[in-house]
């Protein structure tokens, strides 16, 4: 305990606090969302920049060092309002699967997070002109329906109190029944959406992991208990809930830990209110993995002898299948099989 205190002390005495510095693109300065965000950080130092890339894309940055004191960068998005959903991600049977990236990077710090391999920096970029993304979506909706995951390159709900982005997406979904959105989160922040009426075309998708995994591999995220409390609140208000047991991690005593965990989840949550469940093992593009491993060479999670198929690394087929099958069997004791979606590595 003494050691822990000393570490915590070192952390507070050494590092600047999160968002101690906020970089704002000139073009974003007068945006309403910029003003709203800045109003939350009266003690931060504001630095004007020409383009977010001047800060975000500097050479030789240390993703891991920056995680100790992440900064905020407010920018204006000029293009790429929507991206085609990746094959390694679940589409839950939806066509026209896209994701949006109005925030890059996350306040959490999961050891398996692919963002570690994607971005040159762990500073958080918020594109304040969300209205342009929403407008772009509305234009496309005139042509065909859309299924959009709005919280892939970040955890939108975790930052909802300062951005209000999730609320704006929900408004859009309310006015456009041919739009389906998924809000994926590990936060325990459902209360930020408490005032909204639930919608049929909005799924709140909670990623859940055993407490042992959270403590070890999902740094800074809320405990399982807190996430479950938030889910229960959302269910009681009538929201559609998706549970994501993804990524399953290859850990010692997998069956004991995950078995106990699945039972705990379904004993805590009224299962009839779960819309669907996704199950997937850890998988990552080979290029992202290389960068992650370089930045975090001593990660036990990344030291597994992965197999590569079509540029994607994952556990050995036998392990992947065993893990998925085990969790699938456990989950199917509680949930109808048609509601369970699996994705192997």
């Amino acid at each position: 305990m003494k050691g822990r205190c000393a570490l915590a002390e070192l952390k507070t005495s050494l590092w600047n606090c999160n968002f101690s510095h906020i970089y704002v693109e000139k073009e974003a300065l007068n945006h309403e969302i910029t003003k709203k965000i800045l109003s939350h950080f009266k003690n931060s130092t504001f630095i004007e920049i020409n383009s977010y890339k001047e800060v975000f894309s500097r050479r030789c940055q240390s993703f891991s060092a920056q995680k100790n004191s992440p900064k905020l960068i407010l920018a204006v998005k000029k293009e790429n309002f929507l991206y085609k959903g990746a094959e390694v991600c679940h589409d839950f049977g939806n066509s026209n699967f896209y994701y949006s990236s109005s925030i890059m990077n996350c306040i959490y710090d999961c050891e398996y997070c692919y963002l570690r391999g994607v971005y040159p920096s762990s500073n958080i970029v918020i594109f304040v002109n969300i209205e342009d993304t929403l407008k772009n979506v509305e234009d496309i909706l005139k042509k065909h329906p859309l299924y959009i995951c709005i919280s892939y390159d970040s955890d939108l709900l975790a930052l909802e109190n300062i951005t209000g982005f999730t609320a704006m997406w929900i408004e859009l979904a309310k006015n456009n029944p041919n739009l389906k959105i998924e809000i994926r989160t590990k936060s325990a922040n459902f209360k930020a959406l408490g005032s909204f009426t639930p919608l049929n075309n909005v799924y709140i998708a909670w990623t859940l992991s055993p407490e042992e995994v959270i403590t070890r591999f999902e740094k800074n995220t809320p405990s399982l208990k807190c996430r479950i409390e938030s889910i229960k609140e959302a269910i009681s208000k009538g929201w559609k809930i998706r549970l994501c047991f993804d990524p399953l991690l290859y850990i010692d005593s997998f069956e004991r830990i995950y078995g106990k965990f699945i039972d705990y989840v379904f004993e805590s949550i009224p299962k009839e209110n779960i819309s669907d469940v996704s199950i997937g093992v850890f998988r990552i593009s080979k290029d992202y993995f290389k960068k992650m491993q370089k930045e975090y060479p001593s990660s036990l999670l990344l030291a597994y002898p992965f197999e590569c198929s079509n540029g994607v690394l994952s556990y050995r087929k036998k392990h992947s299948e065993d893990m998925i099958n085990f969790v699938y069997d456990k989950v199917s004791k509680y949930i109808e099989k048609e509601k369970i979606f699996t994705l192997e590595g």
Partner: peptide, 8 residues
Amino acid sequence: FYPDMLFK
């Protein structure tokens, strides 16, 4: 150019 302002 922007130094990273990580430390107090």
